[in-house]
């Protein structure tokens, strides 16, 4: 088993890693916004329920959540309801949406009240205020914590192998059966490259938004 063969196998695993990463991001970013609106709701019961839910999701290890979402429907209905991959995506999206929601909430609640009041006395509607005044300030405020969370997500994808979804670590471990350990260490190169690209991307976005200060 040569270097090229291992690299090919790891790249196959990396594709799943990337799919989990991208799908989670695409679905969890908007869902997180919805959850953050829920936790900021003026209707108290809604905000309590949402905060309780966020506490559960953030309080239980993601690995356990993946296992629960994959196995529990099967235990209750007798057959596995979800495919392994879908179970991973559902667990990741819910988990990350909750983390994102707290970042959004921090960003939105951190906007000074004066910004809303200035918009109001200028005759803006609530939607105009959010769209033209608040949104860009929130984006700037949450960029750094989002960068952190997104980088964590890259490495959390390794949890998918707990229900045998073959991502890059699992792909490397398959070689361990043949007594090969180095592919496992080799995966670090791929993670570093992946995170490196993201770091550059976030650095670029930060620079793009450096023309104003909030």
């Amino acid at each position: 088993m040569g270097f090229l063969e291992v690299t090919q196998a790891l790249l196959d695993g990396l594709w799943n890693t990337f799919l989990i990463f991208a799908l989670t991001l695409v679905l969890a970013l908007p869902l997180g916004l919805v959850i953050s609106f829920g936790s900021m709701s003026k209707i108290k019961p809604i905000s309590y329920i949402v905060k309780f839910f966020v506490w559960i999701i953030r309080g239980v290890p993601l690995m356990l959540q993946v296992i629960i979402i994959y196995y529990v429907p099967g235990m209750l209905f007798g057959v596995p309801v979800l495919s392994r991959f879908v179970a991973v995506i559902v667990a990741f999206v819910i988990n990350y949406a909750c983390y994102f929601s707290e970042i959004y909430r921090g960003g939105i609640e951190g906007i000074p009240r004066g910004q809303y009041e200035a918009a109001q006395v200028l005759g803006m509607t609530k939607w105009e205020t959010f769209r033209t005044v608040i949104l860009m300030q929130v984006i700037k405020r949450i960029l750094a914590p989002m960068g952190n969370e997104v980088i964590t997500l890259v490495k959390d994808t390794a949890l998918a192998r707990v229900i045998m979804v073959v991502e890059i670590i699992q792909a490397a471990q398959n070689f361990a059966a043949y007594g090969l350990m180095w592919p496992l260490f080799y995966t670090a190169v791929f993670y570093l490259a992946f995170v490196g690209v993201l770091t550059l991307l976030f650095g670029y976005l930060e620079k793009k938004l450096s023309y104003y200060k909030v």
């Binding site: 000074p112 004066g114 009041e117 200035a118 109001q120 006395v121 300030q137 200060k213």
Partner: peptide
């Protein structure tokens, strides 16, 4: 909002939109 537009207000802390 119609009534608000008839009145103007300048704040102590300016509240310009930073972006």
């Amino acid at each position: 909002r119609e009534m608000i537009l008839r009145m103007g207000l300048v704040f102590q802390s300016f509240n310009l939109f930073p972006q």
